[in-house]
C-alpha cells in the first residue's frame, strides 16, 4: 500500500509518503490506524484525535472501516480548508 500524509500530519510526521505491506496485523483502515498509534510518540500524537483526521482510500473519502489490500492508496489528512 502507498500511505500519504498531508498538511500538519505531514509536517508532524516528517514525511509525505511511505510504502507499507498488508499483513495479519494491518488489513483494514481500523487495524492500520491502531498500528500507526504504536509507531512512536509522533504517530501516537497525530492519531490520538481521529475527529481531526480524514481518511481516503484510493482517493475516495471513507467514513467507516474499509478493507485494504496491497496496491491501495491510503491518505490521512486534516479537515480541508481550500476555497
Amino acid at each position: 500500500m502507498t500511505i500519504l500524509y498531508f498538511a500538519w500530519l505531514r509536517t508532524k510526521l516528517g514525511m509525505s509518503t511511505e510504502d507499507l505491506p498488508c499483513s495479519d496485523e494491518v488489513f483494514d483502515t481500523d487495524s492500520l490506524v491502531a498500528w500507526m498509534k504504536t509507531r512512536g510518540p509522533a504517530f501516537a500524537e497525530v492519531f490520538s484525535d481521529l475527529e481531526v483526521v480524514r481518511i481516503a482510500v484510493n482517493q475516495e473519502y471513507i467514513t467507516s472501516n474499509t478493507p485494504l489490500k496491497d496496491g491501495d492508496e491510503v491518505a490521512f489528512f486534516p479537515p480541508v480548508t481550500g476555497g
Binding site: A7, W8, F77, P78, V80
Partner: peptide, 19 residues
C-alpha cells in the same frame, strides 16, 4: 470548501506560518 482536498497555510508579518 468542505470536500476538495486543499489545505491553507498562512504566514504572518514575522514569517511565522500556521495551518
Amino acid at each position: 470548501k468542505t470536500k476538495a482536498p486543499f489545505w491553507k497555510q498562512e504566514e504572518d508579518a514575522h514569517g511565522q506560518s500556521g495551518w
